[in-house]
Simulated scan of single mutants.
Amino acid sequence: MLQSLGWKRPTAIVAGLFGITTILSGGMALFGGVAAKAAVGDAVPLVLWFNFLAGFGYVVGAAALFTLAPWARLVAWLIGISTLLVFAIFIVIAMSGAPFEWRTVGAMVLRSGFWLSIAIALSNGGKKMEPAT
């Protein structure tokens, strides 16, 4: 599916919804009441802030992808790589014994995988990827 040109706009819609959802949930966790903050559990503040702010980048990336802007690939790479970097920092924090939520691991894998997949597909220029020999 990613090899055809028809994947970009549907993926952009998913990315935009993902961004809006990320902004809303992150905003509730950061700025909501006591109950909203309690529902977050042992969130790592750096990751929480990063994901909230990245949600705005998701919306920008979604708009770039939807309009087939040439800079969509750059945005996807920036989001994907920065998410991986924050994920690495999160792992170091978690391994140091700081409390954390296991759901953050899954969320970071999903977020980085989603954007890196888009970046790779855009970098591939729509050509079918050949297996390594």
Rank of each mutant, 00 (worst) to 15 (best):
R103I: 10
W49R: 05
T21K: 04
V92C: 06
L84S: 09
K37V: 07
A63W: 13
A94K: 07
G41C: 05
R9A: 12
L110Q: 13
P99Y: 10
P70L: 06
D42L: 01
T83M: 04
K127G: 03
W102F: 13
I23V: 15
V40C: 04
Q3L: 08
A29K: 09
S4Y: 12
L110D: 09
K127S: 07
P10V: 06
F56L: 12
A54F: 05
P10N: 08
G113H: 11
L30S: 07
W71D: 00
T83G: 03
L53C: 13
T67F: 10
I81K: 01
I13G: 07
N124F: 03
F114I: 02
A132H: 12
A64R: 10
G80D: 01
I79C: 01
T67V: 13
E130H: 10
A36F: 03
G106K: 08
V75A: 07
A39Q: 12
L84Y: 02
I81P: 00
L78V: 14
F50I: 00
G97M: 06
I81H: 01
A54C: 11
V34C: 00
A69C: 05
M28V: 08
L122G: 01
G106L: 13
A35Y: 12
L65M: 05
S4D: 15
L85G: 14
I23N: 12
W49F: 14
I20G: 11
A35P: 04
I81Q: 02
G57N: 01
L17C: 15
V59S: 04
A54E: 04
L68P: 00
G113L: 09
M28I: 09
L17N: 10
M108S: 07
T83F: 01
G6L: 14
E101W: 00
I120R: 04
L5Y: 07
M1V: 14
V75Y: 00
I93W: 08
G27W: 11
F114P: 03
M1C: 10
G55F: 08
A36H: 09
E130Y: 07
A69R: 12
E101T: 01
Y58Q: 10
R111S: 13
S96P: 06
G55P: 01
F66N: 03
A62L: 02
I120Q: 06
K8C: 03
I20Q: 08
A12S: 04
A36N: 11
F50P: 02
A107M: 11
G97Y: 03
A63D: 00
G41E: 06
